[in-house]
Design a binder for these strands. Structure first.
Length: 818
DNA sequence: CATGGTGGCATTTTT
DNA sequence: TGCCACCATG
């Protein structure tokens, strides 16, 4: 199996998954599902309510095309939003079609764009080897542009520009058009920045996320031969989560599908939650206009949730004006009431959830069947602290990705610069990382030279190096790295970068308690590099593959941290934590829906905007409909200082129940453990908390939640927590590998150097002259000498595969006796 | 001229 | 909590 966290989640309709191996593709499908599956040629819109078996319909439809209609799998394109969804569809189709499905193109919009551009980017003036700039790179470029154009960044903060550029790209607007449309000083500035920004990116041979789509569409529109080629190749186009497509994405699929009109889209207007990213609900509401004679199928039977949960969901969503009327129903029972809780603050809310989880587990639920959903990432803090204290294993999806960690980005910065010397953002990241005496002045000199000669920073620095010792050393370093990259395998090479740049050694010498885990992350990266090596590819090629995969890995694809299981094949079950956005498409037997408060859901930033409020309402609907059996709704009476809406939304930090919760029939709610709060039900009024009486606090120490009553209580930090429950450290190698490897190479065995990992590291005393040792990256060698002691001890070793002896920092080197 | 420490400040949602 | 700007130091 590709990756075990695919198992952790059941997706849209896995409850039916087992049946999927049945021979008859229509078996077990209800009437509308079957209609959608057997639909012949021509456009079709499937309005699939939550939990109505949409993924199933999509996969069976593809299988039907291949098996019954004899469509070659290479003629079919299926587009999803996340890699995870694509991967899952691939797996399901594999079980339905076996090797017949091998040539299906199942991908995300962004990967599709990237793949096309890897062949065609040269037509737009980029090299086909262009790099992808992430958010941070983008911000770096914008910062530079804003400075260049002398824009007052107090008045016009950087974020307004990145948002504007995003908006332009989502709507396929180029700088010239933006300038023409500009009707205010600000819009005019935005157009100017956009224009300059694109030029900087082109010079750096870089594209941002938006460019992957914009430029792909541009190629299709401006180069008829390319368009012809893809139209000839792809006869059937299927799109998942159609309600979340924006204008460029729609243009993309429309261009491809136009002549044959074999366009199959699945979506749910009630689950459109990416408006901020340019998704336009009109794509789904007006699909029938764009494609006359569209067949419309509604899937309204829900196979996921209890009647009570569905009723609550319906009560919330039916208040929205712009939606297609439909109502989910279930053949199953009513199920339990929804359980509610009001906490004094977010900590008590978290404690409540933790203690309920403990109870549920004793009742036989598995951790993996439980999820905690919330509106903002900031809410994870209290939840995480509480779970750590309760020793409950969990994973946070979203948040900081492994590849976003500073140390990982720093090392990858070197890789990027080697792959694409024009990558000025990478240059600026690594040129003085770790510090090597190149400061603002030196950088300015390089920038001036680069500008004067129209050369990338790296090339300009070669010139400047003549008069600057530090820069000279950096240039030499890059030269050495370049050379090494031509002879070493990727894993070895990554380790070489860590050593040669002194990044690792310096980390090892730091007192910072986080240094250790950062070193581990770098070792993880090294190991990952090792598993990506392919006998038939050069290291240069593998480096490019690595960078592409990293760029396209979304936070929905991998958890932010790991529970640190020793054996990756035997991972402990974990509770899943994620935002409502990331939860779309997933389902869990038990859902804790936290923070149902005005200001949080709806978020205070959307309060004054009817369109925004409708989207918040859909978000609430998505949250409720994730639950299969049990749904907990919770809120807090007070929330910490920086929680959204603390001052801007409702007054004085006292929080009231979300208007959405008020739409739920009170009879379907039951309060749990409300002995602390009085005088309020979940959906009305302000609770009175009995803690104002000082004495009472102390008499309640035995209580499950009591330790959250004193707000000043100091909670253990992550470092104090037991490592096996800390989520902030290593992502397991297995996990990283599975998300980075292309599907077809998944079978490859990981090449773990057993002779290294099997043994404990050598002690410093054992390393006397002449002793043979093994280094994880450099291999076998002989000790030539030791210098210093303790953390700063240096070992000189002559490795078999190197002419020159190497000086390594003992503590970091992790040597093993041969 | 580079570096590291300190204090102030902001925090929706993400391919 | 985490990032950035500023300041004192080498």
């Amino acid at each position: 199996m590709f990756n075990d966290h695919a198992q952790m989640f059941s997706s849209d309709d896995s409850s039916q998954h087992q049946e999927e191996l049945s021979r008859d593709l229509l078996e077990g499908l209800n009437e509308p599902q079957a209609q959608a599956v057997v639909h012949g040629d021509g456009p079709i819109l499937v309005l699939a309510g939550a939990g109505s078996g949409k993924t199933r319909v999509l996969t069976h439809r593809v299988a039907q095309l291949v098996k019954e209609h004899g469509v070659p799998s290479s003629r079919i394109l299926a587009v999803t939003f996340t890699n995870k969804a694509a991967q899952e569809m691939r797996e399901r189709l594999h079980s339905l079609l076996g090797t017949d499905g091998e040539k299906l193109w199942i991908t995300t919009f962004h990967s599709a764009g990237l793949r096309m551009l890897r062949f065609e980017a040269a037509r737009l003036g980029y090299s086909n080897q262009f790099v992808i700039y992430d958010d941070q790179d983008t911000k770096g470029v914008l910062k530079q542009v804003i400075k260049e154009l002398n824009i007052n960044d107090d008045r016009y903060p950087l974020d307004t520009f990145s948002r504007a550029i995003d908006r332009f790209k989502n709507n396929y607007i180029f700088p010239a058009q933006a300038a023409k449309d500009a009707s205010s000083v600000e819009a005019d500035l935005q157009a100017q920045v956009y224009d300059r920004y694109q030029k900087v990116l082109l010079e750096a041979n870089a594209m941002d996320f938006g460019d992957l789509l914009v430029n792909a569409v541009r190629i299709l529109r401006e180069f008829p031969d390319v368009l012809e080629y893809y139209r000839r190749t792809l006869h059937y186009v299927l799109v998942d989560e159609f309600q979340d497509t924006n204008k460029v994405q729609y243009m993309f699929i429309r261009l491809l599908a136009e002549p044959r009109r074999n366009l199959f889209v699945v979506g749910d207007d009630d689950q459109s939650i990416y408006g901020f990213r340019g998704a336009t609900i009109s794509n789904i509401l007006e699909f029938e206009k764009d494609f006359p004679n569209t067949k419309v199928v509604k899937l309204e039977q829900n196979y996921r949730s209890t009647g009570t949960i569905l009723n609550a969901a319906h009560a919330v969503i039916e208040k929205n004006k712009s939606r297609k009327a439909k109502k989910l129903w279930t053949a199953g029972g009513e199920g339990d009431q929804l359980r509610t809780f009001i906490g004094y603050d977010e900590n008590q809310e978290a404690e409540f959830i933790t203690s309920e989880i403990r109870k549920l587990v004793t009742q036989g639920f598995k951790y993996s069947e439980l999820a905690i959903l919330y509106r903002t990432n900031a809410q994870t803090r209290a939840l995480e602290e509480s779970l750590v204290r309760g020793k409950i294993p969990y994973k946070i999806y979203g948040g900081l990705k492994f590849f976003d960690r500073k140390e990982v980005k720093d090392i990858l910065g070197y890789v990027r610069l080697l792959v694409n010397p024009a990558d000025n953002q990478a240059f600026q990241r690594v040129v003085n990382t770790p510090p090597r005496g190149i400061g603002a002045q030196a950088l300015q000199a390089i920038a001036d030279e680069a500008r004067a000669t129209s050369m990338p920073f790296l090339h300009a620095s070669v010139t400047v190096a003549r008069s600057n010792k530090s820069i000279q050393k950096f240039v030499e370093l890059m030269g050495e790295l370049k050379q090494a990259s031509q002879t070493m395998k990727l894993g070895e090479f990554l380790g070489f970068i860590v050593e040669k740049t002194e990044y690792g050694p310096r980390l090892a010498a730091m007192k910072d308690p986080t240094a250790h885990s950062r070193i581990e992350n770098l070792q993880e990266l090294e190991s990952l590099g090792r598993t990506m090596e392919r006998p038939d590819s050069t290291t240069e090629q593998v480096m490019k593959d690595l960078l592409d995969r990293i760029s396209l890995t979304s936070s929905a694809d991998v958890p932010a941290g790991e529970t640190g299981a020793q054996d990756p094949n035997q991972k402990p079950e974990t509770v899943s934590l994620m935002t409502l956005h990331l939860a779309k498409g997933l389902e869990f037997p038990v859902v804790f829906f936290a923070g149902l408060e005005e200001g949080l859901l709806p978020h205070y930033r959307s309060l004054d905007d009817a369109v925004g409020l409708e989207e918040e309402r859909r978000l609430c609907y998505v949250g409720i409909t994730r639950a299969m059996k049990l749904l907990y709704l919770s809120r807090a009476h007070n929330r910490g200082m920086f929680a959204a809406g603390g001052s801007a939304g409702s007054s004085g930090g006292v929080r009231i129940v979300s208007r959405f919760a008020k739409d739920i029939d009170p009879k379907s709610l039951v309060a749990v453990a409300t002995e602390r709060s009085q005088g309020a039900t979940f959906i009305e009024g302000y609770p009175k908390f009995s803690f104002d009486d000082e004495d009472e606090i102390d008499t309640r120490v035995e209580d499950d939640y009591s330790n959250t009553w004193r707000r000043k209580k100091k909670y253990p930090s992550h470092n104090d927590a037991e490592p096996s429950y800390s989520s902030k450290t290593n992502v397991s190698l297995d996990q990283l590998r599975s998300m980075l490897m292309p599907a077809d190479s998944m079978k490859q065995e990981p090449t773990t150097p057993k002779e290294y990992f099997g043994k404990p590291s050598a002690a410093l005393e054992e390393l006397v002259e002449g002793v043979e040792v093994i280094h994880p990256t450099f291999g076998k060698g002989r000790v030539e000498g030791i210098k210093g002691s303790g953390n700063s001890a240096n070992v000189t070793i002559k490795f078999e595969s190197f002419d020159e002896p190497k000086k390594l920092v003992f503590r970091f080197a992790k040597l093993v006796l041969a």
